Simulated assay, not measured.
Amino acid sequence: MIYVVGSVNLDYVAHVQKLPRPGETVLGSELRKTPGGKGANQALAARRAGAAVRLVACIGRDDDGIAATASLAESGVDLTSVQKCDMPTGVALIQIDAAAENSIAVLPGANSCLSAGVVRDALSGLKAGNTVILQQEVPQEATRTAIEMARAAGAFSVLNVAPVLPESASLACLADMVIANETEFQAIFGQTPTAEAAQEWCQTTGRRLALTLGADGAILAGGDAPRHIRPPKITPVDTVGAGDTFVGYLAAGLHAHMAPEQALDVAIRASAQACLYSGAQSAIPWIDQISVQNLSR
């Protein structure tokens, strides 16, 4: 079983010709509401990668909460640990430009209700062989509690340090695997994001690290030597959710005892596939939809 402790949002996605600079107003062409939240996205990705997944999260008692969990239920994610609270369901405001780049502002809402107590109850049955996936769109105490419980139970913890928060550096040293992009790596570890820097951090902490590099693929550090795998060549339509697809697929691959390099390769291919379609969750592929022919290098 993979447990995902994290956020559930309803995404308000606006398509614009260019992302506005501070103080600038730009006109958009379309507004859509789609299910999202890093926790929900990663849970769906792990499920579509073939794992049994339970989501630990909080939503509001509103229509947004129903809409935000519909895809999860349809895909078979276990929602028995998703609690309802009196705050509105979290919202993400997403702008996507003509080059498929995006900017995102998150209003946590009900995600703020995910307390250490909620996590302790939901993970009370955690055991060795389980995997726990975490991000940082929920209160830090919940994330820390989940990591500590995973360690105590002998479960494998995967921390996606997004967004970067004050405790990110200390939490990263507790997780079994850390997933960070270039900006997050530099902000947390104070080094230029290179394979050598990633490997040095892993050797110092005894942890493993997946450093994502956007169109240049990802580096897996922490073994004998870092492995850099580049993605297939594609023309992206929408990069929203690609990072979450990577996290869910990588965690699912490692949970299924794939060789780390193979799990990384599948995760990169899945995230590339997700970039070919609009939306976050709607673009996340099932494992049998990752076409080697369409995504050949």
Score class of each variant (00 low, 15 high):
residue 134 L to M: 06
residue 237 V to K: 12
residue 156 F to R: 15
residue 43 A to T: 08
residue 121 D to A: 14
residue 26 V to Y: 06
residue 108 P to D: 05
residue 287 I to S: 15
residue 284 I to Q: 01
residue 1 M to C: 11
residue 84 K to C: 12
residue 226 P to R: 02
residue 138 V to K: 00
residue 202 C to H: 00
residue 238 D to K: 07
residue 129 G to F: 01
residue 214 G to N: 01
residue 254 L to K: 00
residue 24 E to D: 02
residue 159 L to E: 02
residue 170 S to Y: 13
residue 250 L to H: 06
residue 83 Q to N: 10
residue 235 T to I: 12
residue 3 Y to N: 05
residue 212 T to E: 01
residue 75 S to D: 15
residue 233 K to Q: 15
residue 29 S to W: 03
residue 68 A to C: 06
residue 263 A to H: 02
residue 30 E to P: 08
residue 241 G to P: 09
residue 130 N to L: 01
residue 116 A to I: 07
residue 259 A to H: 15
residue 232 P to Y: 01
residue 97 D to H: 10
residue 22 P to H: 00
residue 156 F to A: 12
residue 77 V to I: 02
residue 235 T to R: 13
residue 114 L to V: 04
residue 80 T to V: 14
residue 164 V to T: 06
residue 147 I to Q: 06
residue 198 A to V: 09
residue 4 V to C: 04
residue 130 N to H: 15
residue 146 A to W: 10
residue 180 A to D: 12
residue 74 E to M: 11
residue 214 G to M: 05
residue 90 G to L: 03
residue 231 P to Q: 03
residue 6 G to I: 10
residue 134 L to I: 11
residue 216 D to A: 07
residue 22 P to I: 09
residue 259 A to T: 09
residue 47 R to C: 13
residue 105 A to C: 13
residue 243 G to A: 05
residue 172 A to T: 01
residue 54 R to M: 10
residue 103 S to R: 15
residue 278 S to F: 14
residue 141 E to G: 02
residue 189 F to L: 13
residue 94 I to P: 04
residue 136 Q to E: 14
residue 292 V to P: 12
residue 85 C to G: 15
residue 77 V to T: 02
residue 109 G to W: 00
residue 265 D to N: 12
residue 208 R to T: 11
residue 31 L to S: 05
residue 140 Q to M: 13
residue 170 S to L: 14
residue 135 Q to M: 08
residue 1 M to E: 10
residue 52 A to E: 14
residue 198 A to R: 02
residue 143 T to C: 08
residue 51 A to T: 01
residue 92 A to E: 03
residue 83 Q to A: 15
residue 269 R to C: 08
residue 43 A to R: 05
residue 165 L to C: 13
residue 99 A to C: 11
residue 101 E to R: 13
residue 288 D to Q: 10
residue 218 A to Y: 01
residue 265 D to Y: 10
residue 40 A to L: 02
residue 227 R to C: 12
residue 295 L to G: 01
residue 196 E to K: 10
residue 211 L to Y: 02
residue 242 A to L: 08
residue 25 T to G: 05
residue 3 Y to T: 02
residue 98 A to N: 09
residue 199 Q to W: 09
residue 170 S to G: 06
residue 268 I to L: 09
residue 124 S to R: 14
residue 74 E to V: 10
residue 225 A to K: 15
residue 118 V to A: 12
residue 292 V to H: 14
residue 2 I to V: 07
residue 246 F to W: 05
residue 70 A to S: 14
residue 131 T to V: 07
residue 40 A to G: 07
residue 136 Q to C: 11
residue 175 A to E: 09
residue 135 Q to K: 00
residue 171 L to W: 00
residue 94 I to H: 07
residue 227 R to A: 13
residue 44 L to V: 03
residue 21 R to I: 04
residue 15 H to W: 12
residue 56 V to C: 06
residue 62 D to A: 03
residue 260 P to S: 04
residue 293 Q to G: 06
residue 279 G to N: 03
residue 51 A to Y: 00
residue 239 T to Y: 07
residue 278 S to G: 13
residue 151 R to I: 14
residue 157 S to L: 00
residue 59 I to H: 10
residue 286 W to A: 11
residue 67 A to I: 15
residue 244 D to M: 03
residue 92 A to D: 00
